[in-house]
């Protein structure tokens, strides 16, 4: 059963300045004593605080908030990349985070080799990748370019390839930081319908976006984040209204 449970989750980032991160500072702190006490303290940034979240199959959650509100950090916690400093995060189900689609791709490798590499990171076996490759190749429309190193590709071509592989597997939980749009008009249409299909088939969707239209189109509930906390949760309409309220105040 796919589910996400976050209980009192907090994420702290220690910020080591050049001195704090070096061994010298640590050694001197023990033996010195004359160093200003401010230097000895590690500054921590509280990126998330007391996050409680309960998502079940069928939930389509929109994350709303200003820049720096903690949306991306929360997505990384949901992806399992950040293990919280405080609290409990329990994620059941396969997660696909399309936060960085080109992750693990190597510009020196050919398009085809990159399909393999990206596929491995998505948890596929070599056999499964081999079976999937023709469909991916066809989708990218890159033809002969797949035999060439990826560094010869344009940005758009690279994204086409990354998108085609990343969306070739169906996850239980899909995490998106802003709606993805790739390629020229023709490809964008194809990509959008593919994206929507993956979104529809995933049992939980979390979408962080600044675009109310996108959120309304894909989400059925939302949380409003501010300063690393969830300040409101509820229906999409209410949250968007509250968000635009804070915006006009600010």
């Amino acid at each position: 059963m796919t589910s996400i449970t976050l209980r009192n989750v907090g994420v702290d980032f220690p910020i080591y300045n050049a001195r704090g991160r070096s061994l010298k500072a640590n050694v001197l702190r023990r033996v010195g004593g004359h160093i200003d006490s401010h230097d000895g303290e590690i500054v921590t940034v509280e990126a998330l605080r007391d996050i409680n979240l309960e998502l079940r199959s069928g939930d389509r959650l929109g994350l709303v908030g200003h820049n720096g509100a903690g949306k991306s950090t929360l997505l990384r916690v949901l992806a399992g990349a950040y293990e919280p400093s405080r609290g409990v995060a329990q994620i059941n189900g396969t997660v696909s985070s399309l936060l960085d689609m080109t992750m693990g791709m190597d510009p020196e490798l050919t398009g085809r080799e990159n399909i393999t590499l990206r596929g491995i990171f998505l948890g596929m076996t070599f056999q499964e990748i081999a079976e999937l490759t023709p469909a991916v190749e066809e989708f990218t429309e890159l033809g002969g370019f797949l035999e060439l190193p990826m560094r010869t590709y344009s940005t758009g071509m690279t994204l086409r390839l990354a998108f085609a592989v990343s969306t070739a597997v169906q996850p239980d939980i899909l995490l998106l930081d802003e709606m993805i749009s790739v390629g020229d008009a023709n490809f964008a249409d194809k990509a959008e319908s593919r994206m929507e299909q993956v979104m529809e088939n995933s049992s939980i969707l979390v979408l962080a976006s600044h675009d109310p239209a996108m959120l309304k189109r894909y989400c059925n509930k939302a949380v409003l984040m501010n300063g690393g906390q969830i300040v409101a949760a509820g229906s999409l309409g209410d949250i968007l209204e509250q968000h635009s309220g804070t915006e006009s105040v600010a």
Partner: peptide, 18 residues
């Protein structure tokens, strides 16, 4: 479309030290 057969089968349980 293929479904993910994850090599890592255990659920992700991230629990902080508290």
């Amino acid at each position: 479309m293929a479904s993910i057969k994850q090599t890592v089968s255990a659920p992700i349980v991230a629990q902080a030290k508290d």
